[in-house]
Design a protein around this nucleic acid. Structure first.
Lengths: 240, 240
DNA sequence: TTGGCGAAAATGTGATCACAAATTAGGGGC
DNA sequence: GCCCCTAATTTGTGATCACATTTTCGCCAA
């Protein structure tokens, strides 16, 4: 398995705004790795090393250790039995379950968000959706993924949820890296979304319509991924 | 706010079986704290200190730090803005969401488990249910909670789930401490469960009946908690 | 070229230290 | 008694170190 720098994680390093607070370094590393995961800059199966990440982010290995444990708890990273850390590989079973979980939780979250309709900036959503169309046109997979994330979570955050929302975030962290690899193979051209229908449902205050728009968006977006082939289990994810 | 030792966390210290492996200390601490949380030996709002836990478990603060980050990522612990760590307090909003999430996920998990019916040891479930009745009779709240956890997850684990199951575990870690405080106030006498109906549904292979049994069990078990009063928001969970 | 053996490098883990920030305790003045 | 200010203690954070294990690389023989 070839190694190599995890491809510009440090690219989106936030200026030292709150880095001098308590846990500032950890927060910095956490956001950097999370963004990288969600944007698909980490390839499934890729090894993640403590000192590597630390050097790349310009911090000591210490905050990186804590962040890795944190992300491992959310199953965004896996710690093999030999201690090595890597981005988990997708399997057919895992994929089916992620789809099921998303369909259970995300429409519900959207419905909850609609109860605080005033907090949903549909104008901003339209802007994001336009940028999504643009990124699809240029084939910018990474940009598409971040924008798609922004679109969904701009809605979900209006739910003021403290339980369901973190669960869904964990799900996104888990399938995003795989998503990226598929887009790298088949491109983003055939992608269609139900964002415009969702915005319409929000404006109309139609909960049921919003639920169905989100469900359709998830189902069709994931369908493209599901038709793709899963990595062969050359070596087991972890040999206990 | 009074302090005090977190009450016998080290009680269930496993013998040094696999403690010399990689990450052995961390695994040890992780299981100890998780068990304590699920059994309700941590009271919501209680401060959890790094050095305190470390000394109690006979390890250096290092593995404790990683475990705390791990549990904080699952929202089983919260890291305040000043760095202090505590067991999160329950609020009405959080409680409603936990109930909603449980009703969405756990019946589904039980249904998935029934697809591997052979892996569900109904004989063991009956034994656990008997012990639950016994613990209710003696008012052993801590024992009841661990047995109730065992009952549910013995079923769920048959689902071979790698996505939904961890999400549900995160939920249990979040409401267990609160559950314990309520039992401490109102006792466990009025507790009724649908475990016998669930076992019957499993034996009959009746998926829909199992779903409803689990939903009823969750609803009625949580109803007792919901009627209880939530801690007044004397001080905010976290002052940013 | 290929397979395997041994040295060298890399990696995670646990421990310890120094430091800053926050909490707590104590004492003095009102 | 009550409040406020200061000192002592506690606590989390980041850094560094030593070590065992693992992986990787280089070399030699078949």
């Amino acid at each position: 398995m070839e190694h190599g720098k995890p491809a510009g994680i440090a690219s989106l390093v936030s200026p030292p705004s709150l880095l001098s607070q308590r846990g500032g370094m950890r927060e910095h590393v956490d956001q950097a790795v999370r963004s990288a995961l969600l944007a698909g800059r980490f390839i499934p199966g890729k090894a993640v090393t403590l000192r590597g990440l630390a050097q790349e982010l310009g911090v000591s290995p210490m905050p990186v250790r804590e962040v890795i444990q944190r992300l491992a708890a959310e199953h965004a990273l896996v710690v093999l039995s030999n201690g090595r850390v890597q981005v988990p590989k997708m399997t057919a079973a895992r994929f089916d379950e992620v789809l099921k979980a998303r369909l259970l939780l995300e429409p519900e979250l959207a419905a909850m968000a609609l109860e605080n309709k005033a907090e949903i900036d549909t104008k901003a959503l339209e802007k994001i959706d336009l940028e999504i169309d643009a990124s699809l046109g240029t084939g910018d997979a990474e940009g598409y993924m971040m924008l798609n994330y922004a679109f969904h979570f701009r809605i979900y955050e209006a739910s003021r949820s403290t339980i369901l929302l973190p669960l869904v975030e964990s799900l996104w962290l888990q399938f995003a890296p795989f998503m990226r690899t598929v887009y790298g193979r088949v491109g983003t051209a055939h992608l269609v979304d139900w964002h415009k229908e969702a915005i319409k449902a929000i404006r109309a205050g139609n909960v049921e319509s919003l639920r169905e728009s989100m469900a359709s968006d998830i189902r069709e977006g994931m369908w493209l991924l599901g038709r793709s082939s899963f990595p062969p289990e050359e070596d087991k994810q972890d040999a206990f």
